[in-house]
């Protein structure tokens, strides 16, 4: 403490300069991916340890559930599956019809997206931001900007990938904007996060726009962030304010933000990893990659 090396104030000064340099490089330039990945090897065990109690709790719930509740679950799931199958039959004929019509119009058919299920680690990053950590990373072929869904709608997109985990931003984060369109009439706009997981804001629609409460918003596919046509939110209130140029429209996200344990990751056609990097569940990958010749 007393005589070795530079004085305490000098050391603090040097470290402060280092930190500011790091912040500049990381935030303005994004140069520090390798540093972050090296350090994330040390941080990953902590994330896993923190996630353990809730995982154990879930496991105990599974292991201790009674025969009766399992049977109830089973019948309910059977019913749901039957319903889903019936819908899927219709979807297949519709898909075929759609492809035929698109062929007539000489436009490229929409391709199936590759999908992977990831689990959310229960880790709180920052109370003022809506971020989450999932248990898939570079090893599974994730990339920055990848769309993330759950069973009901869009959850968010991947912002940072590490070897075994990834960080994602949710659509309700105040820093996130989702390009959407109204399913009923195709009117395009942008849905902003508010920092409240039950509300999205649509601030860019004029007072006379054709929008009403109950309208479904789906991803518009513009901006290349999300694939086209996944549900995002349902319009809750439309407040037309005379004297203001834009209406105040609030929507309620379809996805169960903050309540789900699992999310689906979607690869868009041009980002599907080839079979050399990914060996497992290759059948979907092959179709998609084979058909993914982009138009000139």
């Amino acid at each position: 403490m007393f005589t070795r090396g530079p004085s305490l104030g000098m050391r603090l000064f040097l470290l402060a300069v280092c930190s500011i340099l790091l912040m500049y490089l990381d935030h303005q330039r994004g140069h520090l991916q390798t540093v972050r990945q090296a350090l994330s090897v040390a941080a990953y065990p902590i994330r896993v340890i923190v996630d353990l109690p809730s995982r154990a709790f879930l496991w105990a719930g599974d292991a201790l559930s009674t025969r009766r509740s399992l049977q109830e679950d089973n019948t309910q799931l059977r019913g749901e599956q039957l319903e889903a199958r019936v819908r899927l039959q219709r979807l297949e004929t519709l898909q075929a019809e759609n492809d035929r019509l698109r062929a007539l119009l000489e436009s490229r058919p929409r391709l199936p997206d590759r999908i992977l299920v990831a689990e959310i680690l229960s880790v709180d990053l920052d109370p003022f931001r809506h971020r989450l950590v999932i248990d898939k990373g570079i090893a599974d072929g994730l990339y920055v900007g990848q769309a993330m869904l759950d069973a009901a709608g869009v959850v968010g997109q991947v912002t940072r990938v590490e070897q075994l985990s990834a960080e994602a931003i949710m659509i309700s984060d105040p820093g996130h904007a989702t390009p959407v369109e109204i399913n009923r009439n195709g009117l395009r706009t942008i849905a902003l996060g508010t920092g409240d997981s039950g509300r999205l804001l649509l601030p860019f629609l004029p007072n006379n726009a054709d929008v009403k409460a109950g309208d479904l918003l789906v991803t518009s596919g513009l901006g290349d962030a999300f694939p086209y046509g996944y549900p995002v939110a349902r319009v809750l209130t439309v407040d037309r304010r005379p004297g203001e140029p834009f209406a105040e429209i609030i929507a309620n996200p379809s996805a169960a933000l903050n309540r789900e344990r699992e999310v689906l990751l979607v690869w868009q056609q041009d980002r599907v990893p080839d079979e050399t990097t990914l060996s497992d569940d290759g059948d979907e990958t092959e179709d998609a990659a084979a058909a993914a010749d982009p138009e000139p």
């Binding site: 470290l15 280092c18 930190s19 790091l22 990381d26 935030h27």
Partner: peptide, 27 residues
């Protein structure tokens, strides 16, 4: 301050903050 700075750097990665933010404040 040096040890505090290193701990802060690890915390930055853990919390997904800008690299250097917690490092600076802990130092």
């Amino acid at each position: 301050v040096g040890v505090a700075w290193l701990i802060g750097l690890l915390l930055d990665v853990l919390k997904g903050a800008v690299l250097g933010q917690n490092a600076l404040s802990l130092a």
